[in-house]
Amino acid sequence: MKTDVQQKPLDGSGWLGKVMAGLVLGAALACGLLGVLGLLFHADAQFKTVTSQLLRWFPGPVWGLLVAFSFLFRSSRQAWLVLALLNGSVWALFFFLHALMA
C-alpha cells in the first residue's frame, strides 16, 4: 500500500465496504492463486497426492491476511478496484495456464 504523507490520515471510514471487498474478492483471489499454484506444481485433482493436500492449507490463511489488510485501502472504492484488478490478472493467468497445459 502507498504511504503518501500528503494524503489525509487513514481512519475507519468506509470500513464495511473495505472488509466486504476483502471478504468477497479476497476469497476469489485466494482461489485463483490456489488454481495457479496447483497448475504450476502439477497438482492433480486426486485428493491423495501430496501437492493437492499441501495446497489445501494455502487459501485459508491467505484469505485471512487479505481481509486483515483490506483496512489499509484509502477507500472502499479503491479496495474493490485494486482487488478486482488483481483477481482479473490472477484468473487470466490461471485460464492461460489451464489452456496451455490441458
Binding site: 482461489c31 490456489l34 488454481g35 496447483g38 497448475l39 502439477h42 497438482a43 492433480d44 485433482a45 486426486q46 485428493f47 497426492t49 493437492s52 495446497l55 489445501r56 492449507w57 487459501p59 485459508g60 490463511p61 484469505w63 485471512g64 490461471f94 489451464h98 497445459m101 490441458a102
Partner: peptide, 26 residues
Amino acid sequence: MAASAAGFAFQQPIMALEKTLFLPAA
C-alpha cells in the same frame, strides 16, 4: 493456530474447488 484453523475450517469447499481447478490425474 490461526493459519491451521483457517485451513481446517475451509477444507471441504477447497477440496471441491481443487477438483474443478486442477487438471485430472494422469
